[in-house]
Amino acid sequence: MYTVKQVAEKLDMNPHTVRFYTDNNLIPDLKRGENNVRLFDEDAIGWLTGVKNLRDCGMSLKAIRKYVDLCLIGQEALPERIEIVREQQEKVNRELEKLQRCATYLSDKLDFYDRLQKGEETYDKSNPTEWKRKKS
């Protein structure tokens, strides 16, 4: 059995986050020791790892709670679990596309600034204060 601190270190998490997840009933059948201290067995660590991964993927606590509840139902809830994961995957893919556009924009801007510094460009066309000078 592991304590909150041990689990937090093992999973590279903040102990407050571990407590938050347990307080929100995202770790089924969590054991308690003396003085109501949270104790984690391998099953609890498995649940916590799953919750951490889903949060890292941007899933809301509400969706994770529903997912956990569906896991507890078992195989018959598999289609609903698949749908929850599929929806999150679509959100992540949209975010990846947006981040790729941002990365391309920033890379192009840095390339332009590099050319501007080298004198390969005549004015800073991305700076509105330069537009007035260009028109003059």
Rank of each mutant, 00 (worst) to 15 (best):
Y2P: 04
T3K: 07
T3Y: 03
V4M: 00
A8Q: 05
E9H: 14
N14F: 06
N14C: 07
T17N: 05
V18H: 00
R19P: 10
N24W: 01
L26W: 01
L26S: 06
I27V: 14
I27P: 02
P28D: 07
P28M: 09
P28E: 08
L30A: 02
L30N: 03
K31Y: 07
R32H: 06
G33R: 03
G33L: 02
G33V: 00
E34R: 00
N35G: 13
N36G: 03
N36Y: 03
F40M: 05
D41A: 09
D41G: 12
E42W: 05
I45S: 11
G46P: 03
G46M: 09
G46K: 11
W47F: 11
W47K: 00
T49W: 05
T49K: 08
G50R: 06
N53Y: 13
L54T: 00
R55Y: 01
D56M: 11
D56G: 10
C57Y: 06
C57Q: 11
L61C: 02
K62D: 10
A63Y: 04
I64E: 02
K66G: 01
K66L: 13
V68Y: 01
V68L: 07
V68F: 03
D69Y: 08
D69L: 13
L72K: 12
I73K: 10
I73D: 02
G74S: 04
G74M: 03
A77G: 03
A77N: 04
E80S: 08
E80K: 10
I82M: 13
I82N: 07
I82Q: 14
E83F: 07
V85F: 01
R86S: 09
Q88R: 06
Q89H: 10
Q89W: 04
K91P: 08
K91C: 13
K91V: 14
K91R: 15
N93Q: 14
N93G: 03
R94W: 08
R94N: 13
R94I: 10
R94L: 12
L96D: 04
E97H: 09
L99S: 06
C102E: 12
A103E: 13
A103N: 12
T104K: 11
T104V: 15
L106V: 15
L106T: 08
D108P: 00
L110C: 15
R115I: 01
R115K: 15
R115D: 12
L116P: 13
Q117G: 15
K118H: 13
G119F: 07
E120K: 09
T122C: 02
T122L: 05
T122R: 05
D124P: 03
S126C: 13
N127K: 08
N127P: 04
P128A: 04
T129H: 01
W131L: 08
W131E: 01
K132N: 07
R133Y: 05
K134G: 05
K135D: 14
S136K: 14
S136C: 12
